[in-house]
Amino acid sequence: MSKDSANPEVQEHAAEDIHPAAKPFLFLVGSTFKRNFLWIPLVGILITTILGVMHPLKHPAPWDVIPGSWAVFGFLAYSFIVFMARPLFKLLSRDESYYGEGGLPDPYVSAEGHSETNPETSDKSGDKS
């Protein structure tokens, strides 16, 4: 990154530190919050399923006899889409220069390898997931 620091385009957009307005919310990326975040939607599902039994749909679809039908549908649909991602990527992905037109815009500064060099911010998986 130091190589690019002389680039005026990079200097124009660079900031010294974390934005003051963001500092109170850094807990959002802390490991405790990340680990426990799972419970928020789970509790939400439980509450809305109970409420759904108490307040059924006025125009139900045939499958709405199952309590929490939309939650089941949402979970399965979302999971199906995500599970399809790997085979689809294998099938459809090509090199970025495949069409020979220069691809899509790249960053002013490469952040490659940053997560490995910064243990505080690195992900265990080492990728963007």
Partner: peptide, 15 residues
């Protein structure tokens, strides 16, 4: 309620 069911389930699946 049913819209929230769908959205919570999607977020749960993601996490």
């Amino acid at each position: 309620v049913f819209q929230l069911q769908l959205l919570f389930a999607a977020i749960f699946a993601f996490t």
